[in-house]
């Protein structure tokens, strides 16, 4: 039988080691998110295929076109691969990135917010864990940044990461063309800029919703209801009735789309409102979310 020393022993480690609360909290949030997603294995597999399948397929087609054009240019199959539509589909540019990050992957951003983001603060509030966090060398700011890091990781994973890998793949195929490399390098920076907006705004919104609830489910329902109201009755219906594009300023998807398109350099203006107006509204949303989170993330609920 094993014999253990059950008495208390002092720790002789380094007590001046800097506390890295943000990565610790973010890593715990990511682990929890993975656990939630993989709770139902079939669902997780299908979600993964749906989220990354088009990206992998696009990457394979890009390499296939390059291979065919480089090695089989004189064969009949090359004609199909040299088709302008096919070429556009397998070329990484601002338009394709805009389509991929803002349209195709938006459903997965939404799902990441629902599955992972909704419970990040709500569950801690329900379990009275905020008191445990903030009695340790963790500030409110570090706590919020850690939670932001967790949800941001999942949003970046389905948007910025595939976009960056696609650009890197295109770079590897264009290594001999300096002009193309410069274009792709600039595109990479633009993709990261757009990705920052795409990560920041939904993350803050869902963290604010989470901080207002005590259960992940309630936070998720509240967040979906808010989005539905914002996009439907508050934005699109009045816009249709009054035919006034300024109503689009209330739309989350519209504003994020306009700002990200502008950062990507994709000229896709469809409404009369300016990018700066959209950016100002988004900044307002972010400030409102931060104020909400700051108000709700407290170690002690003081009832005067």
């Amino acid at each position: 039988m094993a014999v253990y020393d059950r008495s208390y022993s002092r720790w002789d480690g380094d007590r001046d080691r800097p506390v890295r609360a943000v990565p610790v909290i973010a890593a715990a949030g990511v682990r929890k998110g993975v656990t939630i997603i993989f709770r139902r294995k079939l669902f997780a597999v299908m979600l993964t295929i749906a989220a990354f399948g088009p990206f992998v397929a696009g990457l394979l087609l890009m390499y296939a076109r390059y291979y065919v054009m480089a090695n089989m240019a004189d064969m009949p199959i090359a004609e199909a691969f040299d088709d302008p539509e096919f070429r556009a589909m397998t070329t990484v540019n601002a338009e394709s990135l805009s389509f991929y990050m803002l349209r195709m992957q938006s459903v997965f951003v939404f799902m990441a917010c629902l599955l992972v983001g909704a419970g990040l603060v709500a569950e801690d509030r329900r379990a009275n864990a905020l008191e445990l966090y903030l009695a340790r060398p963790v500030t409110v700011m570090q706590y919020v940044l850690g939670k932001f890091g967790a949800i941001g990781f999942f949003i970046a994973l389905v948007t910025v990461v595939p976009a960056s890998l696609a650009i890197l793949a295109q770079m590897s195929l264009s290594a001999a063309e300096p002009g193309e490399l410069a274009r792709l390098s600039e595109l990479m920076l633009r993709a990261w800029g757009a990705g920052a907006v795409l990560v920041m705004v939904p993350s803050l919104l869902v963290l604010a919703a989470s901080s207002l609830a005590l259960k992940a489910r309630n936070a998720a329902i509240g967040w979906v209801a808010f989005m539905f109201l914002l996009e439907g009755p508050i934005t699109n219906i009045p816009q249709e009735i009054f035919n006034d594009d300024r109503f689009f300023l209330l739309s989350f998807f519209h504003n994020v789309g306009r700002v990200c398109d502008a950062i990507l350099g994709h000229d896709a203006i469809t409404t009369d409102v300016s990018v700066w107006q959209c950016a100002a509204v988004l900044a307002g949303w972010c400030v409102l979310c931060l104020m909400t989170i700051r108000r709700r993330v407290r170690p002690v609920e003081v009832v005067a």
């Binding site: 480690g13 007590r15 506390v19 610790v24 801690d124 329900r126 379990a127 009275n128 864990a129 340790r136």
Partner: peptide, 22 residues
């Protein structure tokens, strides 16, 4: 008060990490 959805060991280890321990 507890860190949600963790085992006793995970919660205690997490508390140590939050206090700056390797």
């Amino acid at each position: 008060a507890a860190f949600p959805a963790l085992t006793g060991f995970q919660a205690t280890r997490y508390a140590g990490l939050l206090a700056g321990m390797p």
